[in-house]
Amino acid sequence: MAGSTLASPSAEAVAQAQARAPTFSPTREAWRRFRRHRLAVISAIILALMVLAILVGPLFWRIPINHIDFAATLQGPSWNHPFGTDDLGQDLLSRMIYGGRISLAVGLAAMFVAIFVGTIIGAVAGMSRGWVGSGLMWLTDLFLSLPQLPLLLLVIYLFRDALKGTFGPEGGTFILIVIVIGGLRWMPVARLVRAQFLSLREKEFVEAARALGASKFRQVVRHILPNALGPVIVAGTIDVAAAIIAESTLSFLGLGFPPDIPTWGRLLFDAKDNLDFAPHWALFPGAAIFLTVLTINFIGDGLRDALDPRRVL
């Protein structure tokens, strides 16, 4: 059933793969296909390296993140400070390493929340023909029209202390931020998934599955959802970037992590007024966000190729 246009360079291997035609379990099959997507594999390696650097970095690079050195403010990259320093003379490399933990975790976790909630709500709304669908769309419309800032202030005001009490200050803030960012970004995903569902559920192959007596759940999970994932994966990559940036906006409003925790978005924000004098300050966090988005996107592409039911490799 493979289409005539190649979706990825790895598709050139189709013929060979078919020639050998070994049988694998679905998981191994997917993994095999994923491995063939070269960019996806390279991206996965780069992302893993970034995660590793963030996790073990502090063991090797021992300058404390809040060490103020007025003798070395706004210095460009040098051996002492490979990423330069900010306006208080704090070392940007160690700040990037520390902030990266939070930015990556927030970006990824918020993306999963947004995609998970969005896909479920979109799928249910797309399958249901009665009031459940209308109700869920009403909920989506409601969330789309809520002004985010007052809502955030309210959520934080209502739940901050309770969460801090239960999960400690850092854990509580983390959960709050992930829920807030993810919870305010699922609506486009829901709308996209619903639109795909409306179209897919009338397609012949779903009709066929239905005729064969597939349960609604099976129709969704085995037949419709895999075909609706394209926009979801794009939304996912965009959401990672958006979540990292949104976190910086939150801490700017005093709603996120304390202001002395240098997340990537926060670094970029702090750097902006010094852009013409100290471009290095913005360059590194900007590049880190870019690299994260890029790698996650290619991994997403690889995943889609690997899970695509229409591809027989």
């Binding site: 246009t5 190649l6 979706a7 990825s8 970029l268 924000f269 902006k272 913005a282 966000i289 890029l294």
Partner: peptide, 27 residues
């Protein structure tokens, strides 16, 4: 897909949404 045009377009798109508007505006 995966032609030179596609690669350039994609890279620019990634740059586009990785950088917040407060940053590009100032730039």
């Amino acid at each position: 897909p995966y032609s030179l045009f596609d690669q350039i377009a994609n890279t620019l798109a990634f740059v586009g949404f990785s950088l917040p508007t407060f940053f590009t505006g100032l730039l």
